[in-house]
Simulated assay, not measured.
Amino acid sequence: MPRDQLINQSKQAFVQALLRLLETESFTDITIKQLVLESGYSRRTYYRYFHDKDAILDTLFTQRLQAYHDRLSHIDLAPAQLPAQIITALWPHHQELQLLAQRDVLVPLMTRHLETIIKSLLTIDVSWRQSTTQNTTNYRYALTYSIGGFTILLNTLFTQPKTSITPEQLTTQLTMALSEIVTQWQLQNDHATTNNNQR
């Protein structure tokens, strides 16, 4: 087996071990010894790829973000389709997200990688995004706001007791949240334009 495949296989073993342990343990209580036993790999292998448990979550995050980016890069994406596409991409992993939310690591994970998410999304070519410096700054603000809001929405929904939410319900919630963001953004832009015209 090629070396890069062996490395990926080792990392994946620790990712899956962490997810299994999170089903019964809090993130802070999980030990390296447990991860080593659960993964079937040695402590030495653990330290070869990870400096702490957060690094295992970072590996999982990077994999999911790359898959999400690849998916959005290969479709003709209109603004109205964003909520459905986001949920469609995330839903196969909703049990992971729910587990991370219930163990209080979803929000810190997303916050830690917010800049990476924004950079990744800004590389996706969409016809409706104008590429001026001012617009890029505005898009960054809008993405920061919407990603933060969506993360809190997911965290809230997935930490409620006995939550049984469908992709359609989540899409509706996200659509309403994004619509509110767009409305507020347009109001701010209109206000700024009016102020500039009055000067």
Rank of each mutant, 00 (worst) to 15 (best):
Q98I: 03
H74L: 03
P167M: 08
T28F: 06
L109G: 08
G40M: 03
L174K: 03
I30C: 05
V126C: 06
S146Q: 09
N197A: 14
T111Y: 07
A142R: 01
T28R: 12
R103S: 05
L100M: 14
L153S: 08
Y141L: 15
S73D: 10
I152F: 09
E180G: 11
L77Q: 12
Y47M: 00
L22W: 05
T183M: 08
R140S: 11
I56Q: 01
T136K: 13
I124G: 05
V126D: 04
D52V: 06
N8D: 14
H51T: 02
P108V: 01
R48P: 00
E96M: 07
F158D: 06
L100I: 05
R43K: 15
D54I: 00
N155V: 07
I118H: 04
L21F: 07
T171Y: 03
Q134W: 10
L99I: 08
H191L: 06
L143C: 06
E25K: 15
S42D: 03
E38D: 10
Q130N: 01
T166Q: 11
R3Q: 06
R71K: 11
P83D: 04
L154S: 11
S127M: 01
T123I: 00
S179H: 14
R140F: 01
T59N: 07
R140Q: 14
A67L: 09
L122H: 07
V107H: 05
T171G: 08
V182F: 05
L99G: 14
P161S: 07
L77W: 14
T183D: 13
R43Y: 05
F158V: 10
T24M: 04
